[in-house]
Design a protein around this nucleic acid. Structure first.
Lengths: 258, 258
DNA sequence: AATTACCCTTTACACCGTACAATGTTATGC
DNA sequence: GCATAACATTGTACGGTGTAAAGGGTAATT
């Protein structure tokens, strides 16, 4: 299994585990470990060494059970991934959602987008998990509720709200990918960005740049100022453009109503 | 190797292969296969069955050489991934870049963004490849040149141009992820979205939706109209918002100059 | 003719996810 | 009290992965 894909196994089994509806097991011997132990161990491994290091064998060993005992608690690896995703979506602890004042919608979106970005920066391995089919766990749902709330009360209809949320999450996902991946690539290759550029620089000088006039003009300027680019600044820049675009839509709808 | 990461092995080896500077081998017997044969075979497998199905053994077998013979041509799997990415970045055939008229910049960006999206839709496995460190092959560079060109001549400085390109590519990447992933998930699970929803629907009715008021209001409306959502419409919607945001920036800069 | 450089191959290792069967443990029904 | 059903845990095994190591064959160079 090369790529981790959430929602791969029997969806119902994952859902039952996500919502704590596992049958619990009355008859046999007590479990040596809890479901949450396995999930936390897996997250710890992923945070420390990346998602690649998370194998069923390693997780089982980490909590002190044998490789196959893992499957007593979790039906397959994709269910483990689902549980990991929902667990980290919970954030540090189940804090109540703040009340968002629509009047400050720009600040609200900025706050939510930044938090969403931080989520991925804290657990960059989550980027590598395919989440087309949403992990419908309690924490994931709460995150969706939060981001929907910040576009509520702006005069948008339901479909526009959903598409605006999609716009925001899509942008954040794309924007965080580079910076988070940087860490994981370095982890796996043991080579920093600077070392990498230094290694390939001599070769780049042998390339004929004539077919790439704009790139050869822009590239050096950007590189000199920011190295590989300043992810924080690029994120803020893109977010501002997006907010301006959303503002134009809100203004247009308000004008229509007047 | 669970996740494919480009630029993992010796960067110089990949670069030499990308630019056709491989030593070619004068002394020994003729190669039974060409480098391009291996790359094309790997792409065919990935297009048909996803990146997971691409293993060095299968690629070697597909072109008629033994498993280890693969390593005569390509130093390791990450180099193969690099070559695959650059090969598909070339598009159908090396067509010359169109001249972009800055006056039609909205159309230009739309065209490039749509083409970039189509690139991922044609080869969804490319989404799963970590590309933090760019694959600096000729075709990839040409694609970067193209997208930089459409933000050239708009009155932006080099850094703004780069960040605008980043904004666009980030959005497209995020936007295409869902729809492309849908195909790959279905491929791996053999379950369509409808089947999936049908399977989990009974469970969803047992959930207490009170903590998720906005989601439970928006979700059904969106779902009824579009099922899991209309990716094409969502893409266009987000792109329009982004263009509006870029337009505001261009106007502001023009006003400053006046 | 000898050497050298190169392509191809077989074998092997350590890892992966997990199917299967066996063994041990506990709460329940009689 | 005891048989039984339900459960947890375990070792073994299979087919897959990337690739290191070593050896055999072939063709151009010396």
């Amino acid at each position: 299994m090369a790529e981790e894909i959430s929602g791969r196994g029997d969806p119902l089994k994952s859902l039952h585990l996500l919502w704590g509806r596992a049958s619990a097991g009355k008859r046999g011997p007590k479990s040596k470990v809890q479901l949450a132990d396995l999930v936390q161990a897996a997250i710890a491994i992923a945070d420390a060494e990346g998602i690649d290091a998370v194998s069923t064998r390693r997780v089982a060993e980490a909590v002190g059970i044998s490789a196959m005992s893992f499957y007593t608690h979790i039906p397959d690896k994709s269910a483990l991934i689902d549980l990991m995703i929902d667990a980290i979506a919970g954030g540090p602890e189940g804090a109540a959602l703040p009340r968002f004042d629509p009047a400050n919608w720009r600040d609200n979106i900025t706050m939510v987008a930044t938090a969403y970005r931080q989520f991925y920066l804290d657990h960059p391995w989550a980027l590598q998990v395919g989440t087309h089919r949403p992990v419908l766990g309690p924490n994931t749902l709460r995150a969706y509720e939060a981001i929907l709330s910040v576009v509520d009360g702006l005069g948008l209809d339901e479909v526009e709200m959903d598409m605006t949320v999609t716009l925001i999450t899509n942008y954040v996902f794309g924007a965080v990918r580079d910076v988070a991946r940087a860490a994981s690539v370095k982890q796996q290759t043991g080579m920093s960005d600077d070392e990498w550029w230094y290694a390939i620089a001599p070769f780049l000088e042998t390339i004929d740049w004539a077919p790439y006039p704009v790139a050869s003009r822009v590239g050096p300027v950007v590189g000199e100022l920011y190295g590989l680019g300043d992810p924080d600044r690029a994120f803020t820049f893109g977010l501002e453009r997006m907010l301006d675009g959303i503002e134009a839509m809100i203004a247009r709808k308000a004008a229509l109503r007047a």
